[in-house]
């Protein structure tokens, strides 16, 4: 199992935000998290990445069978976990190209990667400074392409992106997750989607609905999305699936 989360309880600033989350992500699979704003989706991703404010009070997170919940984000990144932030910070004075090079390692050419996501002209610009919504997403993807992680955590990759960009972003995510491979695919993804639009661009194997810090429903992602579209998240609460 690539990623295994068991009975995960997390607090932020003393306030519990996750209550016993269970989730298993096998190698090569892509799973999708649905849920209202504030349901705990982002908290779950942040906890998997190991950010300090997300304090694990109970339960475990393991990666390829190894308990990682005491490791820092840098150590988790080194193992092969990568994250696309929904609202990344701006880093003044640090050119994007330099950060991408740091992610990729010294011998990798980053210009080609940048061209792939339409950011060839952005390498000299400060990370995220004055970037549009779509540019931020592409910048995040570029950093992930350079990192080439085994487990990709994506927080609303389609939010704030116009139609023109969404296809490009979808393609880049497919690349990250080795969707071109039918067999022996190893990369796994866990994607937060509020609208489900991203499912028009890539196949997912499993879906979850989160509600009030818990996973309340699991199933085929398209079917889940149809139910949500039909009944809203309120329907999920009443659902007896």
């Amino acid at each position: 199992m690539m990623l295994e989360i068991q009975n995960l309880h997390v607090e932020v600033a003393g306030k519990p935000v996750l209550f016993g989350v269970e989730l298993s992500l096998p190698a090569g699979e892509t799973h999708v998290l649905f849920g209202r704003n504030g349901s705990g989706k982002t908290s779950l991703l942040m906890s998997i990445m190991g950010f300090e404010d997300y304090r694990i009070t109970k339960g475990s997170i393991s990666y390829r069978g190894k308990e990682i919940s005491r490791l820092g984000p840098d150590e988790r990144a080194a193992l092969g976990i990568g994250i696309m932030f929904q609202r990344p910070p701006t880093i003044r004075g640090l050119p994007l190209g330099q950060l991408v090079q740091l992610c990729a390692g010294p011998d990798v050419g980053v210009a080609e990667m940048a061209a792939q996501v339409g950011l060839a002209g952005f390498l000299e610009r400060d990370v995220n400074l004055g970037f549009s919504g779509g540019e931020i997403k592409r910048s995040e993807l570029l950093q992930l392409l350079a990192q080439d992680p085994e487990v990709v955590l994506l927080d609303e990759p389609e939010s704030g992106v116009d139609l023109e960009n969404i296809g490009l972003i979808g393609e880049a995510i497919k690349g990250l997750l080795q969707k071109e491979k039918r067999r022996q695919r190893e990369k796994s993804g866990l994607i937060i989607t509020h609208t489900g639009h991203i499912l028009n661009y890539l196949e997912a194997d499993r879906g979850y609905v989160m509600c009030d810090g818990r996973i309340t429903c699991t199933g085929n992602p398209r079917e889940l999305l149809e139910d949500i579209q039909e009944m809203g998240y309120g329907g999920c609460l009443r659902c007896e699936r």
Binding site: M49, G72, R76, P89, I91, G93, L94, L99
Partner: peptide, 26 residues
């Protein structure tokens, strides 16, 4: 937030801090 952002890209806390400070002066 900035330090952790860079740590998520694989930089150690010291490297992330130094990178941000250098950027600040840049």
């Amino acid at each position: 937030e900035e330090v952790e952002y860079l740590m998520a890209r694989g930089l150690s806390e010291e490297e992330a801090t130094a990178t941000i400070v250098r950027g600040f002066l840049n």
